[in-house]
């Protein structure tokens, strides 16, 4: 286990280094000159050179890269071109909103998908099964930018139960989280159903039944833990997709998170801020993947203890 963790973290460090560098060079490859954007096309050459020097953009790319890495390592992301504020503090302001949204969406997804998938699997080909799978098909098919306005129409405009947008009241999170969570719930419930159907045909389930255990115990203690193994993997992958979905959902609901910040920064050509946002999202992917691996490892003794002693 310890050995596994060290290996996994070491390889994650390499990935982080690669991602950081890739983001740096990508921004440099994009056509357009930040100095020109900041000063406008009519600026004098001397002013441009001054600014270029002040920003350090006249140095060789390799030196800029090393300088950039040095600052990143100290969690110093520089200053926003637009607001002149420290990017670190801007990010810290927006991160909690996104974390809140994603976690609650994840919770929604799990709470909806597990019972739905189990119900469908245990009553295969029944009315329950068909209803559950139709609902999940709808969930996968409706994109976030449609689901969001539909929910707003129903719950905010028509019923008047929940706020339309923003993050002012605690209940504000419900609609965006629901929007974000449905697609994931749909995929997860299909996965739970398919895996559980496979697991209940395994030999060890027959063994458990031959012990005289009740159906409930057999499902809860023997089938579910084995069903969750592949579901955990999917959860990790989907959490990444959730982050991507968050960008759209945050815009639809004016949710003040990283997604909206990124879109704003792109609109305002705030290069350092865009760079930092992309970096943050990439790092989150890496972290989520490590977390998934560790979780998988905890859940499956075959990986935790290694094959064959």
């Amino acid at each position: 286990m310890q050995h596994f963790l060290i290996t996994r973290l070491a390889s994650a460090a390499i990935v982080v280094f690669g991602v950081t560098s890739l983001v740096f060079f990508m921004i440099h490859l994009i056509p357009g000159d930040p100095v020109e954007v900041m000063l406008g096309e009519s600026a004098r050459v001397a002013d441009r050179e001054n600014l270029r020097h002040a920003l350090g953009l006249d140095r060789p790319v390799l030196v800029q890269w090393l300088d950039y890495l040095y600052h990143i390592a100290r969690l110093d992301f520089g200053v926003s071109l637009h607001s002149k504020e420290s990017i670190t503090s801007i990010l810290l302001m927006h991160i909690p909103a996104t974390i809140e949204l994603t976690l609650i969406a994840l919770l929604f997804a799990i709470v909806i998908s597990l019972p739905l998938g189990i119900l469908a699997a245990l009553n295969k080909n029944s009315g329950w099964d068909r209803a559950a799978m139709t609902v999940s098909l709808l969930g996968v098919s409706i994109p976030n930018f449609l689901m969001g306005p539909l929910l707003i129409l129903l719950f905010s405009m028509y019923l008047g139960w929940l706020p339309v947008s923003g993050r002012d009241a605690p209940e504000s999170v419900i609609l965006p989280a629901l929007t974000l969570g449905t697609a994931m719930a749909a995929i997860l419930s299909r996965m739970v159903r398919a895996t559980l159907l496979e697991v209940i045909n395994e030999d060890y389930i027959r063994t458990a039944r031959a012990k005289g255990l009740s159906r409930f115990r057999v499902i809860l203690l023997h089938a579910l833990p084995n069903t969750l193994l592949p579901v955990i993997t999917l959860l990790g992958l989907q959490l990444g997709a959730l982050l991507a979905g968050a960008v759209i959902t945050e815009v639809v609901f004016s949710w003040p998170g990283i997604g909206q910040l990124t879109i704003d920064a792109i609109h305002k050509r705030d290069y350092p801020l865009v760079q930092s946002c992309i970096l943050l999202i990439s790092l989150t992917y890496v972290l989520v993947n490590i977390a998934t691996d560790i979780l998988y490892c905890v859940a499956d003794p075959r990986i935790r203890l290694g094959q064959e002693s």
Binding site: D203, Y204, R206, T207, L221, P225, N226, L229, A299
Partner: peptide, 12 residues
């Protein structure tokens, strides 16, 4: 059963 390899629950 015939297959001791698959007749025991792998996670318990």
């Amino acid at each position: 059963f015939q297959e001791p390899m698959t007749s025991l629950n792998p996670v318990l």
